[in-house]
Nucleic acid binder design. Structure first.
Lengths: 344, 344
DNA sequence: TTGTAGGCGTTATCAG
DNA sequence: CTGATAACGCCTACAA
């Protein structure tokens, strides 16, 4: 007659509640899920729930419903403000829908990223947003066979059926270069990220586009690559200054640009009078530098938000046609690239 | 004879593998968990796993094992670099142990925080690290009755049996003030965070300690409070400059200090000659300001790391005595509070 | 060593 | 409207 003997210290389950309310576990479940039940039973169940402090077990619920109510976001490194903006935006959308956000910082480790994509079959999340900085054939294959919905923030092959949110950073980079030319600069150095990354190769192309659009020849001497980080940008700037003297430095992201600003100041160069600087991403902290940093906004928060929305839409309609969304760029001119008062 | 009929398109389970390998589900489970099995069976299972692309279901595994292999971190706002540092550190420890990190950005909403603590009974994570900026009686009660291990980053009542990681920010604040006095400043303004927050009240006390230690009277005119954010710091600085003229401004965190720096520059005041500035937290970006920002390091990354370690230790030893760890502060002097060349 | 069977906590089906 | 019961996918005594 007493096959189960839940000690009072164990976590309460539907069974505990049912016993306390004097009803069946089915009734408990029904009441808790808003299914038809008599007021009498509903009241007793609610009272019992409060009394025993019942909370539904997430694992059991997931197992049954096949929904975890969790999504994951995988990016290179949370220390990069761009990803912080995305996390912030994604978290906001997720919270609205009652979802929780799981974070993966991959350090751009391809194996890590692939393991994540290939591990979706474990169903620990309902979907994944990923922002890889490299897109290998293995990535493409993993995306194609992913066991759960995935949204990519970044470029993907055209024939890959996956929801993506992109930004035309190539055009954005070109625009920045044109702006620098239009405000009187000619020797425009470029501090790029690693050229074997997607952002690196795309922004490089944009840089060349911009020069070409203004009829300026590419000068190899003005090119440097770093790691998309602060210190890396600083070192790249030093290397450039050692061998030549640009009148502007365009950086593939703001973190490197901020590092560049520091080095220019150390070198006694005035910004923007001697050397103008423009970055990309328009991170919040672009305004704390002095002079404030001009930057090409790549709408990081919007990319995050749109990616999250795409993911939830797909969770609701698994068979929908994949979408490829494009976020607009905009050039934000601040002190670091102000027009010269007097033509040099 | 065929009670189950898993379509080939459904996610493979132990059953699928067992069938493909011609063994029982128990053998599959054993092989996969490294329990004794004959080489023959092991090989067949591994082959079958590869063939059908089996991956263990996380929910089912959690339900059975009562472990989610997930922990959560709840903080006020991921946009604050301090929390980014903590997330980074926590994530690192978690990854080492094969755990995943779930993020909660509460916007300092007490109800949200309480819901998190009280919701631990759902067992969607194995434990929680929380860094609340207010500690109400309801918080204390929720911590006392939490259904899963919790580690608090921040101050808690002494009689509350909970693992905590603290930092003596009061002493740190005092030290900053003393440093300013020792380098010749006397009218030291204080831009604090909200005084009804724990950090706000503690840092205020430290500010007063510092003044008292150097025999300087508190001047209400030099006090301002803001919201711990960039723009808020800037506005606070403007309010101060409207009514008086300090020779130093100590800020309760770096974000506000960076905002203050901008306003001082706008006002044509030289830093550190006219006004010195010191912040707290020593965020990475303290070095991108000009002059570079002096700051009291509160070891954010170490607090995150230690908190994660405490949590994992408790997961292993649930009945261990609670620990209260203290992280050291250190004053990092940079350009914004350099000693005056000539005494004023 | 291997297989059978029961249970983790829920939800949902099907009688009553 | 309510209650018994069967899954969800996995692990693990217990038995063979």
């Amino acid at each position: 007659m007493t096959p189960k003997r839940p000690t009072s210290s164990a976590a309460p389950t539907v069974d505990t509640v049912a016993r306390a309310a004097g009803v069946s576990i089915a009734s408990v479940s029904r009441v808790l899920n808003g299914l038809p039940a008599s007021d009498e039973v509903a009241d007793r169940v609610h009272a019992a729930v409060a009394e025993v402090g019942y909370q539904p077990n997430a694992a059991a619920r997931s197992l049954k419903s096949r929904r975890t109510h969790q999504i994951a976001f995988a990016m290179e490194n949370i220390a990069n403000p761009v990803y912080v903006a995305m996390v912030h935006a994604i978290q906001e959308v997720a919270k609205e829908r009652g979802y929780q956000l799981l974070l993966h910082s991959t350090d751009a480790d391809a194996d890590d990223e692939l393991a994540l994509l290939n591990g979706l079959g474990r169903r620990y999340v309902d979907g994944l947003i990923i922002s890889p900085i490299r897109m290998s054939p293995a990535h493409v294959e993993a995306l194609r066979t992913a066991a759960a919905p995935v949204v990519v923030i970044g470029a993907t092959p055209d024939d890959l059926a996956v929801d993506t949110v992109r930004v035309d950073s190539r055009a954005g980079a070109a625009r920045a270069v044109e702006h620098l030319v239009d405000t009187g600069r000619r020797r425009i150095a470029f501090v790029n990220g690693p050229v074997d990354t997607t952002p690196g190769s795309i922004r490089r192309a944009g840089y060349e586009d911009g020069l070409a659009a203004r009829g300026i020849a590419l000068d190899e001497e003005l090119l440097e690559t770093a790691d998309f980080r602060l210190a890396g940008g600083a070192e790249a700037a030093r290397r450039i200054l050692e061998r030549t003297r640009p009148d502007a430095i365009f950086c593939a992201n703001d973190l490197m640009a901020l590092g560049v600003l520091n080095v220019l100041r150390e070198a006694g160069l005035r910004v923007p009078e001697d050397v103008a600087v423009v970055g990309m991403d328009d991170i919040d902290l672009a305004t704390i530098a002095w002079p404030q940093l001009s930057s090409v906004s790549l709408g990081s928060d919007e990319r995050g938000r749109r990616a999250a929305e795409l993911l939830f839409e797909r969770l609701e309609q698994p068979d929908r046609e994949p979408r490829r969304e494009l976020v607009e760029t905009s050039l934000v001119v601040r002190g670091s690239s102000a027009a010269r008062e007097v033509a040099s």
